[in-house]
Amino acid sequence: MALLEVKDLEVCYGVIRALRGISFDVNEGEIVTLIGANGAGKTTTMQSVVGLISKNGGKVTFDGHDITKTPCHKIVHMGMTQVPEGRRIFQELTVYENLLMGAYSIKDQSGFKNDIDAIYTRFPRLAERRNQIAGTLSGGEQQMLAMGRAIMSHPKLLMLDEPSMGLSPLLVDQVFEIIKDINKDGTTILLVEQNAGKSLAISDRAYVLENGSIVLSGTGSDLAASEMVRKAYLGG
C-alpha cells in the first residue's frame, strides 16, 4: 500500500482552478518527484497535501488514514513534514532554537540530544553556528537548517518544495546528495523541483505537472529519457 495516496485532488483560488484533479502516490522508501514549470501547481500540491491550504475536491490518504480534512498540525504529528518553498526558517530564533521547534511534535524529549547531535554531524555548518540568529545565515545554510529542522520530527514522509532554489551549483549538488542520504536512512521523500535533471537522477519515480494536471509519469530514468521532458525541462 502506498504511504501517500492522492486522488483527484482539486484546489481553486477563487475562480482559478490551480489543480484540476491530480492523482499520484508515493510508496514507502521511494523518492518521488513532481516536476513542472512555474505556476504549474507544484507548491499548491505540496501545501494542500499537508493541509496548509484547503482542498476543493479529491481525497488524500496518508499511512492508511484519510487526511483530506485533517488540519496541518495534526498531519505533522502523524509523520508528514515539509520543507516549505523559500525555507521559512524562524529568522529571529537561533539555529539551535529552530531545531528545537522542529522537534515540537515529538512528545518524548529523551532522544532530543541524540537527534540534534545527528543533525550537527550531518550538517557541520549548523554545529558551528548553533547559537547564531538564523536570519543571519547564508541561503545555503538556511536550506540546511530548514532540512535539519524537518528531520528533527522523524518524519515518515519528508516533502521538500524547491530545495535547490536560489543556491549555487555546488550547493545544489550538496542538497541533492543530502536528500539521497536522508532517503537511504529510511525516510520516504516527495520532492518538488524545477531542476528536472538533478531531481530525476535521484528519483525512483516522477510526475510531470502542467497547468494543474499531471501529464506524464514514470520512473525517473524513463522521464529523463522522454522526448517531451527533455524538450520542455532539460533544455534539449
Binding site: V76, P84, F90, E92, M101, Y104, S153
Partner: peptide
C-alpha cells in the same frame, strides 16, 4: 512560549512544525 514566537513570525511554518495555531 517558543511556539508563540514561531507563530508570531510565520504562521504557516509554525503549523508545519506541528503547532496548533
Amino acid at each position: 512560549g517558543r511556539a508563540m514566537i514561531a507563530v508570531s513570525e510565520d504562521k504557516g511554518a509554525a503549523q508545519l512544525m506541528g503547532i496548533n495555531v
